[in-house]
């Protein structure tokens, strides 16, 4: 039964990707990207990767198509071009590469086998000992925020850097090198009454849910990455319905930009505290005499840093793109 669901989802993914190859319009492609993200999130659930599915549902089906939409809106949909000559070279190249890769997969361990090399090195240790060493049920969170916390610090830094890069790239002259949106009070778009009323009811719960995901990430699927994206999507929803000037008054761009740095700093400082005590970087046993309690505090701080950075960076990126869209509008 599980195999059937798995195969059907994979075939749907292939069909969506095929449609993306055929479809020419950018708007239709964006919508198909959203479908693709939702399908892959469902696939991750059948593969037991609930944390990953959570992230992919928020990012792949939500934020990523939204940014694509804003880009398409800013640059214009463009003239649909007639299909050119069949790219024979590309087809040959892709076929050969694909065939080689498929031959390569034949050497891989069969799907789902428990004695595959991937499952025999560190994974058993994580699964058997993390209950005692870290003391929280969600092994993904233990590995993310404790065993491989240094790796995660790198990822958070990449996200932060990407946010800074977007701000620098989209900066317009006269804004002192930042793509921060300018306040233009009085420029109200057409009101969407029903959407605005419903979103007013829902946004508080979306933000509350983000906090739940943030702080419940030790016990169930969730954590800083998912919570950050959900929190940002709440802000983005508000911005979409009430316009960029309004959301900029509620959540000031300068504050969000600062918070993006604060999250990374919180993460790094958590690691440095251990060094001040003469322990290795990111050794959480510095926080409490009981090592398990120390792990709890450390993971909470680190995940909070991740959540703040991810939420701020996504909001900053949305502001920069929405600003481009408003400038393109006039």
């Amino acid at each position: 039964m599980e195999l059937l669901v798995n195969s059907v989802l994979l075939m749907l993914l292939v069909a969506t990707a095929g449609a993306l190859v055929v479809v020419r319009g950018l708007l239709a492609s964006t919508m198909l990207t959203s479908v693709y993200g939702l399908l892959s999130a469902s696939f991750f659930v059948t593969m037991d990767a609930v944390d990953v599915a959570f992230t992919e549902a928020a990012v792949g089906a939500g934020v990523s198509p939204l940014l694509l939409l804003l880009t398409v809106a800013a640059i214009g949909r463009g003239e649909p071009r007639a299909a050119g000559a069949l790219p024979i070279l590309a087809i040959v190249l892709v076929t050969i590469t694909g065939a080689l890769l498929i031959i390569g997969t034949l050497d891989m361990p069969p799907f789902g086998s428990a004695d595959a090399p991937a499952h025999t090195h560190v994974a058993p240790r994580y699964l058997q000992l993390s209950g005692e060493e870290i003391g929280i049920p969600n092994v993904v969170t233990s590995v993310l925020a404790s065993y491989r916390a240094f790796d995660t610090l790198g990822e958070v830094l990449v996200i932060f850097t990407a946010g800074v890069a977007v701000l620098l790239i989209l900066a317009t002259p006269g804004q002192r090198g930042s793509a921060r949106p300018r306040y233009t009070p009085g420029s109200h778009s057409e009101p969407h009454t029903i959407l605005q009323v419903v979103s007013k009811i829902l946004i508080p719960f979306i933000l509350l849910f983000a906090l739940y995901v943030q702080f419940h990430g030790e016990y169930g699927p969730g954590g800083g990455f998912q919570a950050g994206v959900i929190f940002a999507s709440g802000i983005i929803l508000y911005g979409l319905l009430y316009g960029l000037p309004t959301v900029c008054r509620v959540v000031r761009p300068a504050v969000v930009e600062t918070l993006a740095a604060v999250g990374v700093l919180l993460y790094g400082t958590t690691g440095l505290l251990a060094m001040l005590d003469g322990r290795p970087f990111l050794d959480y046993s510095v926080f409490a005499a009981n090592p398990v309690l120390g792990q709890h505090i450390g993971i909470l701080l680190v995940e909070l840093g991740v959540g703040i950075t991810v939420a701020s960076v996504i909001t900053v990126i949305y502001y920069a793109f929405a600003n481009q869209f408003e400038m393109a509008e006039g």
């Binding site: 969407h192 029903i194 959407l195 419903v198 009811i201 829902l202 719960f205």
Partner: peptide, 16 residues
């Protein structure tokens, strides 16, 4: 509850 709120709203937004 979330679906009951969001689904008709999404339909409305599409139609509009």
């Amino acid at each position: 509850l979330f679906v009951l709120f969001s689904s008709p709203t999404a339909s409305h937004a599409l139609a509009k």
